[in-house]
Amino acid sequence: MKRAIPWQAVVFLLPALLIYSVFSAFPLLDTLRLGLFATDETGAQHFAGLANFKLLLLDPQWSDGFWNAMWNNLKFFGIHMLVQNPIGLLLATLLSVRGLKWARTYRTLIFLPTLLSVVIVGFIWQLILSPLWGVGERLMDWVGLAEHFQPWLGEESSALITLSLISVWQFIGVPMMLIYAALLAVPEEVIDAAVVEGASSWRIFWEIKLPLIYPTLGLVTILTFVGNFNAFDLIYSVKGALAGPNYSTDILGSYFYRTFFGYQSQIGSPTMGAAVATMMFLVILCGVAIYFYAVQRKLQRYAL
């Protein structure tokens, strides 16, 4: 016999449902709808089906910028996966060691940049890395590495990597704290039994702790994916809407901004901007679907 949902639950859930619908669900649906329309010379909109997406993917006028932004976004995500998450795992493992002095202080200092505004972080690193007035070259000179200093934010080959590492520095506290909480949840009796059996610290980590935190590592991966493909603020605050030099730091978020709102000589197009936003949504949706239907399912089988 099915139980009816109590009216108290409806009363408490209704405000959250209304807020989510007004500020998230309805705008998303309207964006998907707008991507199916086109704007003529008079500014009137008419239904165009998939014409905007065909232009975005195949017309060089639009597709060159889109695929460049997509490739840069993949590199942005790859650097976070290869640098941020492994270092976050290492820091969490070190901070979970029994008897570590000043562990709370270390956690606070590492997590502190996450609380800062991205605009402030971008401005600070611009000051540090500026070849004209920055302190980066002087700091490298103190350790004998001044000859290796370069205007990393001003070169096409290094600007995106530099911005990615700045983002890693700011947000590394998030995966660290998630993994740290998972490590603390590992049963102590399992660890003690392994120690009694003579297992080394490395073996305990690789064969006991790491398999038990696989679900958390999967969660960190999907959060990194979603966050990176929604990224915009750091690129905009440091390199502006043009994502220079020569669009070398352009990602989907900045490309969407220029397409929708326009910038300098580029005229904004809400319908094409909605098409870009729809493609971003589909990319994120596909990534999340792959995680849930492949990785998460495998983790569940492993747990069983």
Rank of each mutant, 00 (worst) to 15 (best):
W67H: 05
L82T: 12
I87G: 02
N85V: 15
F66L: 04
V83Q: 01
G65A: 10
W67Y: 14
F66Y: 05
F77H: 06
N73F: 03
K75E: 15
I87S: 01
Q61C: 01
D64T: 10
G65P: 12
N68T: 15
F77I: 06
Q61S: 11
P86A: 10
V83L: 02
D64Y: 06
L95K: 07
N73W: 00
W67P: 03
I87M: 08
I79C: 00
Q84V: 01
V83G: 01
G65Y: 14
G65V: 11
A69E: 06
L91R: 02
G88A: 05
L91H: 10
N85L: 15
A92Q: 03
A92T: 05
S96A: 15
L94N: 02
L95F: 12
P86D: 14
T93C: 11
L74N: 03
I79D: 04
F76L: 12
M70P: 03
R98V: 00
F76Q: 07
Q84Y: 02
G78Y: 09
T93M: 13
L90D: 01
S96V: 11
N73M: 10
G78Q: 11
G78H: 08
I79E: 03
F77S: 09
S63P: 07
S63D: 03
L95I: 12
D64R: 11
N85T: 15
I87C: 02
F76V: 05
W67A: 05
D64N: 13
K75R: 15
G78I: 08
G88F: 00
L74P: 00
M81D: 07
G88M: 03
G78R: 08
L90I: 14
Q61A: 10
F77V: 08
N73G: 15
L74A: 10
W62Q: 05
D64E: 14
L95G: 00
I87A: 07
P86Y: 09
F66N: 04
N73L: 04
M81I: 15
N68C: 09
A69C: 10
I87F: 09
S96L: 09
W71K: 12
I79R: 01
P86K: 11
G65K: 14
L95H: 00
L74W: 05
S96Y: 06
F77D: 05
F76P: 10
A92R: 01
L94C: 08
N73Q: 09
N85H: 14
H80R: 09
Q84F: 09
N73Y: 01
K75T: 14
N72F: 04
Q84G: 04
A69D: 06
W71G: 10
F66G: 01
G88V: 02
D64P: 03
A92G: 02
V97E: 13
M81F: 15
Q84W: 07
K75W: 15
L90Q: 04
F66S: 03
W62M: 07
H80E: 07
N68W: 11
M70S: 14
A69Q: 06
A69T: 03
R98H: 09
R98C: 03
L82V: 14
L74G: 06
P86V: 08
A69S: 04
V83S: 05
N72L: 11
G65D: 13
N72T: 07
T93L: 12
